[in-house]
Amino acid sequence: MKKDIILAGVGGQGILTIATIIGDAAAVAGISLKQAEVHGMSQRGGDVQSNLRLSTDEIHSDLIKEGAADLIISMEPMEALRYVTYLNNDGRVVTSTNPFKNIPNYPDEATLMQKLNALPNVATLAIEDVAKENNMPKSANVILLGMAARYIEILTPQQLRQSIARVFASKGAKVVEMNQAAFDLGLNAVK
């Protein structure tokens, strides 16, 4: 079994934290993982992505082939669309619908949503709005992970939830609790 995931967003939105949580869960579960990150110049408000590959067999390439990704998890709707050519036939998109507008020529939102909703397998949620309503603005990325959790399949939501406790342990019990609550919010938002 394998799962090839593209994590997408804008520098600073916390996609590397999502990758860290999944990575920890994979390591504990003893499955193979490769995760290519973007560091450096792009982190200054540019588009960022991470190729995250999980498998019960050996993984060779750090990069996912075009047309081979199973899942795109994105903090931002336009960034989700940037990588659709990487999806396979049954590929799925899980994305926030809250746009991050730091460029002057950001496309029309209605058209963007139309394109997204035209994809066969897509789950959307206004993640940042939900995070603010629930007084957890810093955990928006973990809500997104919760939303994607049941599609990761090679790891269970329960395994991911346990990883959150480990990854945030150094920040104290309150932070762990809040992030697990965020995860549950996302998990329960999709049925």
């Binding site: 669309l81 460029i103 058209t111």
Partner: peptide
């Protein structure tokens, strides 16, 4: 591999910027 989905139009470059 055959491409399942065509490149999405309306996706704009997002260059890095000074904070």
């Amino acid at each position: 591999i055959p491409q399942a989905f065509a490149t999405a139009q309306n996706v704009m470059p997002r260059p890095p910027a000074l904070c």
